[in-house]
Design a protein around this nucleic acid. Structure first.
Length: 692
DNA sequence: ATAGGGTTAG
């Protein structure tokens, strides 16, 4: 185990960097001269001047006004202006609380009614705080008071839902705006594109683009970038990315030039497709256009860390910004180039950038990756001394770090501190903890963490399922039942995802009896398996060479109208071939042919496999892969196979027309076909669970 | 006057 050299000195190196005093005074003075003249013009209504002034000074004035019992002198406009200062400076510790108390004072101490702007400002604050619940609350609340939301209100709402990833709400919010005759603008559409991007809904983005043009709105660079981003992020290949390039063509025609952001989006998309040459090509084009890169661009073409930073400075004459420094430092740390990381850190401070939450988080995470919680905690202290307010992310990293070390006590002491500083134990943190705990060899860890969480809040459904996944790996049915009851107690719906978690867990723990037990319970509850689950079951049983169960599961493809894909077919056929069940092999090949699969090619592949099996041992899938990750991979590979989609259509049609509608109308041929596929489950053969 | 937009930071 190597430690991070030099990181020890990090504490010493990080010192608060203050804006040069002269410069600061200069800004202050110039502003105040300017203010003086505006003050004279509108002096009659301004009680608390905000322009060019510190949030702290404004707060003092505000307090003075309260103490003198003069708060009534403020009108809505002025309240809004003051609130606006704090929302802009939300990163300054205490701003949030101040805003809340101003909003409260407004309603309780004065007779001033908040207007739509006040609500917009408050909603904007909650948006920055990622408190989506309260955004909704504000939205409802204002309308209860007959305040009509405006464009900005809706823009904030759309932005919020796009961060939440709620299904189809973007479209309904858009329709609501149209119905209520609330004007849409370019920003509205930018945010609608964002929502599409979050939900990977490219067709809807195209639809919004049409709407926008129909409404006579001209997309600007922001809108174009957001639109291009949806397309690029979801492009699987160059052909799909071409649609983004088409948008660029349209941009050029309208005289809107691609910017750094545009290029970054595209280069990143190319990088994730592994199209390095194309990425470099685009990079060259960008250089020709005179657009200067940043750290993200360079990352896209494989230049990272200190090298990237120096390149920016020396070749492109770009002054790196906060993000650039942080990004490059993180890259260096991840590449174990610790001295580089430290050099970046000092370079950053010399350039006048104070370490911010991200900087600290990056450094702390580097220590946590090395299991060095002591140094991570030292940085945590240093950070607070530095007046950088820890956020939920920082707490999550630390708490998670302790959980990873099996130190539940320390972890929850920190949770306590977090709650004290008004940061809630949110879903992200809980899921991270449970996730880490569930990876432990010791199954009791996740139970302990879960119990502690339960004392503080209602664990969300994902967390419960993650626990079930882990429990099913190490314990038998009664323990799983116990946790299902807990889940039920918390009013979570037990659905296919829940069973999938249990069944996947049980399979991972090689407890196939239990896996089948819950699989049957699930079906008994009227929930059908989906393709992922069925594949997983087939694979687990085929690996264990349990032929009868594998064949039963194979029938389920038909029974539930799910088309098996290449992997499924090969797993089953391989097993048949391996243990010499040639009758089943032939039967299956026949079924495949009937369904329109290319049975001959499967046959050929099996024969080939048989010949090869003497020479080499098949490498199995990595059993340690997490099922969530598997699911994502699964979707990627399976969606691409068009022949399978066709077969699926055919099969579903067949199931509908032949098997489901009416058996009386079937001809003999069809009857025998269906019989051949008769699901074992119709007779409800006990597929043994506990009784086994 | 006050609130809302694009990518990559932990």
């Amino acid at each position: 185990m190597h430690k991070i050299f030099g990181l020890k000195h990090t504490l010493i190196r990080i010192k608060p960097v203050k804006l040069s005093k002269n410069l600061f005074d200069h800004i202050k003075n110039t502003k105040s001269i300017h203010n003086y003249s505006t003050f004279e013009k509108s002096s009659k209504s301004v009680i608390i001047e905000t322009e060019g002034r510190d949030a702290e000074d404004i707060w003092k004035d505000y307090k003075t006004l309260i103490n003198a019992n003069n708060l009534n002198k403020l009108n809505v406009t002025e309240f809004n202006r003051i609130l606006g200062v704090f929302v802009k400076n939300l990163t300054i510790p205490g701003s949030y609380g101040k805003m809340l108390s101003i909003f409260q004072d407004m309603q309780e101490m004065t007779k001033v009614k908040p207007d739509e702007s006040t609500y917009n400002i408050m909603m904007s604050m909650y948006l920055k705080k990622k408190d989506f619940k309260r955004i909704n609350f504000c939205f409802d609340d204002m309308q209860k008071q007959n305040i009509i939301p405006n464009t900005i209100t809706y823009n904030i709402m759309i932005k919020a839902i796009s961060k939440l990833g709620k299904s189809d709400t973007a479209m309904s919010l858009y329709h609501e705006m149209v119905e209520r005759k609330i004007r849409r603008n370019e920003k509205t559409f930018t945010m609608l594109f964002c929502a599409c991007s979050a939900r990977r809904n490219v067709p809807q983005a195209h639809q919004f683009y049409k709407f926008m043009l129909n409404e006579g709105l001209q997309p600007d660079i922001y809108t174009y970038n957001a639109y291009i981003n949806v397309i690029a992020r979801n492009a699987k290949d160059l052909k799909e990315l071409q649609k983004a390039m088409d948008v660029i063509k349209q941009m050029n025609e309208k005289g809107v030039k691609p910017t750094l952001v545009t290029y970054n989006i595209l280069i990143k998309a190319l990088q994730s497709m592994g199209k390095r040459t194309e990425a470099l090509h685009l990079f060259n084009q960008m250089e020709l256009e005179g657009v200067k890169p940043n750290s993200s661009t360079l990352e896209g073409i494989g230049i990272t860390g200190l090298q990237a930073l120096l390149k920016l400075r020396n070749i492109y004459k770009v002054t790196p910004n906060h993000t650039d420094f942080n990004t490059c430092m993180d890259q260096s740390l991840k590449e174990s180039k610790y001295t580089d990381a430290m050099e970046i850190l000092s370079y950053m401070q010399e350039s006048g950038f104070k370490p911010n939450v991200s900087t600290y988080s990056i450094l702390m995470n580097a220590h946590i990756r090395q299991n060095d919680m002591i140094r991570a905690m030292e940085l945590f202290t240093a950070m607070k001394n530095d007046n950088v307010e820890p956020d939920d992310y920082i707490y999550a990293s630390l708490i998670d770090g302790f959980v990873a070390q099996n130190n539940v006590e320390q972890a929850f002491i920190l949770v306590g501190h977090m709650l004290e500083s008004k940061i809630e134990l949110n879903k992200m943190t809980i899921n991270r903890l449970i996730d880490t705990a569930s990876k432990s060899k010791d199954p009791r860890l996740v139970q302990r963490v879960f119990e502690r969480i339960e004392r503080l809040t209602v664990p969300n459904k994902d967390a419960c399922e993650r626990v079930l996944w882990r429990i099913a790996q190490s314990y038998d049915i009664p323990v799983v039942e116990k946790y299902l009851k807990i889940m039920n107690k918390h009013n979570h719906i037990i659905n296919r995802e829940t069973f999938t978690a249990i069944i996947t867990g049980a399979s991972k723990g090689n407890n196939l009896n239990q896996a089948r037990y819950w699989y049957n319970i699930m079906i008994g509850q009227g929930i059908s398996p989906d393709h992922m689950l069925l594949s997983m079951m087939i694979r687990a049983h085929a690996d264990a060479k349990i032929i009868d169960k594998t064949l039963s599961l194979w029938n389920d493809f038909h029974y539930f109208g799910i088309a098996p894909d290449d992997d499924d077919i090969m797993y089953v056929l391989n097993l048949c071939a391996e243990i010499g069940h040639w009758k089943d092999e032939i039967r299956i090949l026949g079924q495949l042919k009937e369904l329109g699969y290319d049975a001959d090619s499967y046959k050929a592949r099996i024969t080939e496999k048989k010949q090869q099996s003497n020479d080499r041992i098949e490498s199995k899938m990595d059993p340690d892969e997490e099922y969530y990750e598997e699911y994502g991979e699964y979707l990627k590979t399976r969606l691409a196979n068009k022949s399978i989609i066709k077969a699926k259509e055919r099969m579903q049609k067949w199931v509908r027309v032949v098997a489901k509608i009416s058996s009386q109308k079937m001809d003999d041929n069809a009857k025998s076909r269906v019989e051949q596929w008769t699901p074992y489950r119709k007779q409800q053969l006990p597929i043994t669970g506990t009784k086994d």
